[in-house]
């Protein structure tokens, strides 16, 4: 095994082009577990922590460009106002030690269906900035997750950043775990209202082979809100709308029975999370509720 320590992104891309089997490592929260338990023995590790370009976030028009190496801790501390749902999701990640080190970029690279950031990235319409010596590709989160722990990156590509829309509108994240801290999602859900376009983003995690959008639920809710002129003059949502939204989110899942929960429970819990987060988001939109936690 080789340990590659590029100092710049350009150097990292050259190494990745030359050795596409090299496994990128940043916070180590996935890769090191695989190494410690002999689940993976790559030819090389490509350490990204020495690359200054990956370490920061910046405001770009309509979005935050979040460097792949920014740890969850900084998302919580610095981006709670701009990206409230991502900050909520980040606060639910692992432990303080994990949040100090783990990154949204790493979450994307691992592409685990249980990754906490994914539903937010899908619901908000984030775009992954993938780079290689061949150039830059902007991959919408919707197209990024291909299968269990498989993503759309080419073997020579690295994640430079993820562009997360700064919507200024209510958004929520919620995650069910069987412990009150430091727990992997049994299922998770994010909702983002997009009043400017009259759309709704809704996405689920840990209840299908990949994180995925609940498009039927998104369309249903967008239609309901559009039809009643709710964006302009919001009123409390009827129970039938809230319930139907929950059902459609649950229907979007393809969960399995596993040691963390049953498929039936995951569907049920998703419907509850969808209904509750919709309530909170809608209360936020109508100005009556509390902002995202």
């Amino acid at each position: 095994m080789d340990f590659l320590r590029p100092a710049t992104l350009a150097e990292a891309l050259a190494l990745k082009a030359e050795r596409p089997g090299a496994v990128p490592i940043a916070g180590g929260t996935d890769v090191m577990v695989e190494l410690n338990f002999d689940h993976r023995r790559p030819d090389a590790l490509l350490d990204l922590t020495g690359i200054a370009e990956l370490r920061d976030w910046s405001a770009v028009p309509g979005a935050v460009r979040l460097g792949a190496g920014v740890p969850y801790r900084r998302v919580i501390d610095e981006l709670g106002g701009r990206l409230p749902a991502l900050a909520t999701a980040s606060r639910s990640v692992g432990s303080p030690q994990i949040r100090n080190r783990g990154t949204v970029g790493g979450n994307l690279g691992a592409a685990s269906p249980a990754g906490d950031a994914h539903p937010v990235l899908l619901a908000t319409g984030a775009v992954v900035e993938a780079v290689s010596t061949r150039g830059t590709r902007m991959i919408p989160a919707t197209d990024f997750y291909l299968g269990v722990k498989r993503n759309a990156l080419a073997p020579d590509e690295l994640i430079a950043a993820v562009h997360v829309p700064e919507t200024g509108a209510p958004q929520q994240f919620a995650k069910v775990g069987t412990r009150n801290a430091m727990v992997i999602a049994v299922c998770s859900f994010a909702i983002a209202l997009h009043p400017a376009t009259g759309r709704v983003g809704a996405a689920l995690g840990s209840a299908a082979p990949t994180p995925r959008r609940a498009t039927a639920a998104e369309d249903f809710l967008a239609d309901e809100l559009g039809a009643g002129d709710q964006w302009e003059s919001p009123t409390p949502l009827p129970d039938s709308t809230r319930r139907r939204f929950g059902e459609l989110v649950a229907a979007a899942a393809s969960p399995v029975d596993d040691v963390r929960g049953t498929a039936a429970y995951r569907r049920h819990a998703l419907s509850v999370l969808a209904r509750r987060t919709l309530d909170w988001a809608w209360q936020g939109y109508t100005g009556r509720g509390r902002p995202c936690a």
Partner: peptide, 17 residues
């Protein structure tokens, strides 16, 4: 506080249920 509620900061309830 969220920390006092079932689910904690994973934000599953603000008192509902």
């Amino acid at each position: 506080d969220l920390l006092d509620l079932p689910g904690g900061v994973a934000n599953t309830t603000h008192g509902e249920g």
